[in-house]
Amino acid sequence: MAGFRSTENYIASRDLEVAVNAAVALQRPLLVKGEPGTGKTVLAHEVAKALGLPLIEWHIKSTTKAQQGLYEYDAVSRLRDGQLGDERVHDISNYIVRGKLWEAFTADQQHVLLIDEIDKADIEFPNDLLLELDRMQFFVYETKETVVARHRPIVIITSNNEKELPDAFLRRCFFHYIRFPDRETMEQIVQAHFPDIKQELAREALNVFFQVRGVTELKKKPATSELLDWLKLLMIEDLPPEVLRSQDPKTAIPPLHGALLKNEQDVHLFERLAFLSRRQR
């Protein structure tokens, strides 16, 4: 069947392709988890692009309420308008602000809806969206109308695992865990993003990158997005590949490491390891 496939700038493993296609075919939400920086959010963009559908993004914050995705009743401005004698005040629907889900439900074309970082919200958030995502409809109390999806959107939900999600919610989703890519896949990803990178530079950079990831004590291991940033920097600076290979103790910490190590403890740790390896030599 036609569906989602790896594109030239997004390398998806076969299991991810199957999961996305299952979610599209059965019209159920797809929950994507994985290390930060492995391309969870980008996935939604790529799915939208591959299927030729517009994308609606709903980024979740700790203060986001499920209701905000459906609609909000702006009672305060109605109260104000009431005092000022505005005509609009007689129609309550003037004060209903539509949320992202409503937008996706009533659009005249199928949409891809990204609910980004659902674990940031309150514990009750996923439970409050159960019925809405299952039946793809909800009831507006203020105007006594039921909003039903004209085209069921393809829902992609990402989570960083900061909170566990309720079972009832999980039961309604497909699930995919994006594994950290192995070296071969990583080479493909680098090729996809920088088609004109020097082969030698790419190889040396990947060597350094996987070495850095191999240090188990790191607080935040660099992921794909960090690698890509770093490569971009290396290419802008036009560093020769030899710099990465050199065993010179002064450069034991990789050049432009700021793109890879995001935390001063990690940088210290790396310096210390470099110091130790210098002593052993």
């Binding site: 299991d15 199957v18 999961a19 299952a22 979610a23 929950l31 699930f175 995919h176």
Partner: peptide, 11 residues
């Protein structure tokens, strides 16, 4: 792949 995406919800 399909059965994994359907039946397992926790890595």
């Amino acid at each position: 792949h399909l059965s994994r995406a359907t039946l397992v919800k926790d890595e």
